[in-house]
Design a protein around this nucleic acid. Structure first.
Lengths: 123, 123, 123, 123
DNA sequence: GTGGTCTAGACCACA
DNA sequence: GTGGTCTAGACCACA
């Protein structure tokens, strides 16, 4: 999953969400070490301050912990991760249904569009 | 459909999309009068310049035509409107599937989530 | 010669020039009757006030005269017409050479471009 | 080449064309730094917003690329620049021939006028 | 009254 | 410092 940041929108919320998704997908070993800000900033192609800001938000969400001696680690609170996953999913679904509903599609049409799309492409 | 503009994001793209959806849903009679810039700006609670920027984009898309000193009208090109509707729908679906896929859900789970959501709520 | 007015520029100077060219080309019999403002406005697709404004300028240039009893007539001063023709031509040439020169073309290239263009098309 | 903006006409299209010509003439090193909006606005004696409008159009044409927080650069796409040069030249020639033709000059006369003019002045 | 242009100036994210 | 967005408000041509 590339970073694909939209330069026209604030970067740090995009980064925050990007990393949250990575954690939720289990790309980082829970309770273990996390890349450095420097590495992450470089990977995302943003300034370290921007990455810092995103990580701060992730700490506030409890997904990432800073430990003086160990450094930054991913939370090992699996319940929190699961909850985050569900709430992100809900947000995506809600936003999507709202937007596509605004176009005037009925429920059945929406399901059909999705099914069609899922068959077309490999994601 | 209220304007529901997110103050933290650029306003004109939100307005542009909002109006595009209204046109696509058929809320304006094709080929007929369109609210004035001043009226729309007031309705959306933004400055006239901001509304004008959004309308400029809609004009570039061909959805709206400007007749200096008379006012604007919605295009009567139904094919263009249908096309716009499809491309918006595609964008929403693609973005949604990408985002929700990033969380690690399988195709079946996605369909189930949507179905569940559609039953829960009346939209 | 259609009117081809550019809606993004002030109309009356365009109209003024358009009519001046018609006079210079000899489309109106010198010293004789001239279409009414109403007719001209309709032909050009503009408001009568706008046409009025353009005609006022043509009167100032001396190309058109208003006579209480006869109405508006084209001047019969052929020297003035010839002079207008030359000055318009000079303006067009000067503007053109300036603009095309700004692109970085040499004199020879300019001549070649024109010759090529003149052979291509029938004007 | 001074800016020579005509205060009676919309400024931003004039600015757009002015800068396009500069790029086409090779006054900016391709792929390299471009003056800042603020600097250009100051140089042209217009407001920053007006300059920004012109630059937006140049970006749409692909002549200029924007790198948020870094600044702008001129495209390094030489084919695009050459194409732009040709299309500008064509527009100038077409407009000129149309206008001068409207005065009633024959092809030969037009060529003669140009040649005479080119000999008179050093441009 | 309609749309278009322009200015001055504030505020923001990012590097 | 860089570009982007937004507002308030003035002024203009045209109908």
């Amino acid at each position: 999953m590339a970073w694909e940041l939209d330069d026209n929108l604030p970067l740090w919320p995009q980064i925050k969400e990007h990393i949250a998704k990575k954690i939720v997908r289990g790309e980082y070993s829970l309770g273990e070490d996390f890349p450095t800000v420097r590495a992450l900033a470089h990977e995302a192609g943003v300034n370290r301050n921007t990455m810092q800001r995103a990580l701060m938000e992730l700490e506030n969400m409890g997904l990432v912990l800073t430990n003086r001696t160990i450094g930054r680690i991913v939370t090992s609170d699996e319940a929190l991760i699961e909850e985050t996953k569900k709430s992100l999913a809900k947000k995506y679904v809600d936003d999507f249904l709202k937007e596509i509903g605004n176009l005037g599609y009925s429920r059945e049409e929406i399901i059909d569009i999705i099914k069609g799309d899922l068959q077309d492409e490999n994601r």
